[in-house]
């Protein structure tokens, strides 16, 4: 009894130490192949992969980077593996952001991960022809509405100050007509929800999302209704896409830490509830 009561009153800092160990130690361990095989590829992840896989080369994909540095551990791997998949399939990529730091994340992904990748180097990607970064525009969902009629009016210049209308890749892109998919990577507002309402349902363009785990349950009903082609949720979703596309990256690397820390949390939840019910029972 005394033990359980002490357990209930345990200093939370002790739990913090356990969780810290559960996260840090696995970072130094290389995950066994058996563990990697167990990474789950959910249905929404698979359907996004299948959709991109079946697009003809040269199709234009738009990626909206609607997040900032705090959520990069979850979202940057989603961007990197998706970009790698697109460029391997010879798709044209238009990047932009409704968050000020989004296009910076797009640049980081391109410079640090994509353009240095041996397989993609061979493709000899050209800025303005194979991909473009349109930068940030203020105005949240109203920017999306404007893009529905004229993308160049919504984004007059790109990330580097070049006029959008002068960029070869944007020559035959008036609005969402020639865009085969908008893939929104989002950490909040404006994000996937706004893209579904203002681009998908209003202008008929296909939308897919990559969300933080916090956002995922909120947006998953739109997968069931078909308003989203696919949806990646948190680090597990990112790892799922890395697995299915074959570009193992940071999400896969982090999954061992994720799994061990989850096991630790589950253990503490069970222990806490056990202690709660035992001590409550005695009091009664």
């Amino acid at each position: 009894m005394e033990f359980w009561q002490k357990l209930l009153a345990i200093d939370r800092r002790i739990i913090f130490i356990f969780v810290a160990f559960a996260i840090i130690v696995p970072l130094f361990i290389i995950a066994p192949p058996g563990f990697l095989k167990k990474i789950d590829v959910s249905l929404p992840v698979q359907s996004l992969y299948d959709y991109v896989e079946n697009l003809p080369p040269g199709s234009k994909i738009m990626i909206a980077f609607d997040y900032d540095p705090p959520t990069t551990p979850e979202l940057q791997p989603m961007a990197v593996s998706f970009l790698k998949h697109c460029f391997t399939k010879d798709l044209k990529v238009i990047m932009l952001g409704l968050w000020p730091q989004g296009p910076v994340q797009a640049q980081f992904a391109m410079e640090r991960e994509i353009l240095v990748d041996e397989k993609i180097k061979a493709k000899n990607l050209q800025y303005g022809i194979d991909y473009v970064n349109l930068g940030f525009q203020a105005g949240n969902e109203f920017v999306i509405l404007r893009m529905g009629t004229d993308i160049a009016a919504a984004f007059p210049v790109d990330y580097f100050g070049t006029r959008t209308k002068e960029i070869p890749l944007m020559k035959d892109v008036k609005n969402f007509d020639n865009i085969r998919l908008v893939y929104n990577i989002s950490a909040g507002y404006p994000g996937t929800y706004e893209w579904v309402i203002f681009a998908g349902d209003r202008f008929g363009v296909k939308i897919a999302g990559g969300n933080t785990a916090v956002q995922y349950p909120h947006n998953s009903p739109y997968v069931q209704t078909g308003q989203l082609v696919g949806l990646l949720g948190g680090m597990a979703g990112a790892a799922g896409y890395e697995k299915v596309s074959g570009y193992l990256g940071k999400a896969t690397k982090y999954m061992l830490s994720q799994a061990v820390s989850h096991a630790m949390v589950i253990f503490f939840i069970i222990l806490g509830n056990l202690a709660y019910f035992i001590t409550r029972g005695r009091k009664v």
Partner: peptide, 18 residues
């Protein structure tokens, strides 16, 4: 205003579906 803008600016390129 938004409706007028939509009507004016959607000067459709060939093959537009909207």
């Amino acid at each position: 205003c938004s409706q007028i803008l939509l009507a004016q600016e959607a000067a459709p390129p060939t093959g537009t579906k909207f």
